[in-house]
């Protein structure tokens, strides 16, 4: 099965207006091909980016915060608002050496904003 059919095979069909043979509009449930391809492109590029970040975290170039931020589809500004921490501090915390020294109260804010547990936030899934 191709990737786009795979992600569209979830049983949650949307409705689309189509012209039937009598010139009347009716609702149908088949997603157009263009939608499938563009959604597949967006999802696959998002997954690839996440995988890349995971490897960089494991190599010690980025902090796990970066991974979870990307997983929740946030950018530093949005995460800053959600966690109640200044944007420049969030950007600093994306560096692994800074992140390692964070105190528990700051980490707690991140766990609430990102909805992950404290243990999860300190590492990324391996393998």
């Amino acid at each position: 099965m191709e990737f786009e059919d795979e992600i569209f095979n979830d049983g949650l069909s949307k409705a689309y207006y189509k012209h039937n043979d009598n010139g009347q509009y009716v609702l149908e449930k088949d997603a157009p091909w263009a939608e499938k391809v563009s959604v597949a492109l967006i999802i696959s590029s998002r997954r690839a980016l996440l995988e890349e970040i995971r490897k960089e975290v494991l190599a010690g170039r980025k902090s796990p915060l970066c991974y979870y931020m990307e997983m929740r589809q946030l950018d530093p500004g949005m995460l800053a608002k959600a966690a109640g921490i200044a944007t420049f501090r969030v950007k600093r915390h994306l560096r692994p050496e800074v992140f390692a020294r964070l105190n528990p109260s700051v980490l707690d804010r991140y766990t609430k904003a990102l909805r992950v547990t404290l243990e999860e936030l300190k590492t990324v899934p391996n393998g």
Binding site: P32, A34, E35, V37, S38, V39, L41, I42
Partner: peptide
């Protein structure tokens, strides 16, 4: 383009 198509169709 993918962004435009997504807003257009999805």
């Amino acid at each position: 383009l993918a962004d435009v198509i997504r807003w257009l169709e999805d």
